[in-house]
């Protein structure tokens, strides 16, 4: 993880939604990072097929669409779970 994420608040206890990211169309502008209210987006450390860094999602997404709103490259698609995931009890199998 980048240094930037080290400073962030710990992941939220509940994940209400998720995003699909078309990482190969991302140009790495980073506008989504500060836009994310629960601060669950961080930039990757390795480039996509174009060489750009791209956002990575951590638990705690609320499905609010802020990332999608600010994204100039239309790489986000937003989902809202029918039932929120309790991250304190979540296992790898229950995540998506």
């Amino acid at each position: 993880m980048t240094a930037r994420t080290e400073d962030k608040a710990p992941a939220r206890a509940v994940t209400r939604g998720t995003v699909v990211i078309d990482i190969d169309r991302c140009k790495g502008c980073e506008l989504c990072i500060p836009a994310c209210p629960p601060q669950v987006l961080t930039m990757s450390t390795e480039g996509n097929s174009l060489g750009y860094l791209y956002p990575i999602l951590e638990p705690g997404c609320t499905g609010c669409t802020a990332c999608l709103q600010v994204c100039p490259d239309f790489v986000f698609e937003i989902y809202r779970y029918d039932d929120p995931i309790d991250e304190t009890t979540a296992t790898e199998e229950t995540i998506r």
């Binding site: 939604g17 790489v75 986000f76 698609e77 937003i78 989902y79 809202r80 779970y81 029918d82 039932d83």
Partner: peptide, 9 residues
């Protein structure tokens, strides 16, 4: 998991 798509690309 069961989820609703709320916004397209």
């Amino acid at each position: 998991r069961p989820a609703t798509k709320t916004a397209e690309f």
